[in-house]
Amino acid sequence: MIMGNLGFLLYGNLVLIVILYLYLYKIRKIIGFQLGMNISMLVGGFGAIATGVLLIYQFPLKFVIVTMITAVIGMLIGAIFGALFDYQTLLTGYINGLMMGMMAPMVGAAANNSVLFLLFIEVVFLFSLVLVFLSAKNT
């Protein structure tokens, strides 16, 4: 059932990331740069991993274009979250999202369409978003 609805899963991930961005945008003045650096690394990296695995499960015959798109998406997510704080957090989130986005389709292709791996990646992604939310709330 889950393999037929990969697009909805990707859309749900994107919506969660946008909601987290709007929440962080409201309280960005009280977050220091140390926490900001870690937030941009975490969200960029795990967003890129979830996107890459979902895309390579959906299009297993287009490895090249999926890798390029995932690297660009990881770069954008890391840079947008880093741009909330200052220029150096932007650079950190950018490079981490890029590296993770390059690796993610490879991991997804090596996992051979296993549903368990996809569920594990989704749970790790949601857990990292919850961690970011809690640490931003208690700062």
């Binding site: 297993p60 015959l61 490895f63 490879m106 292709a109 090596a110 051979n112």
Partner: peptide
């Protein structure tokens, strides 16, 4: 590409 189990079309 066989290292990652990608299809033979590659």
């Amino acid at each position: 590409p066989a290292l990652c189990g990608l299809p033979a079309a590659y």
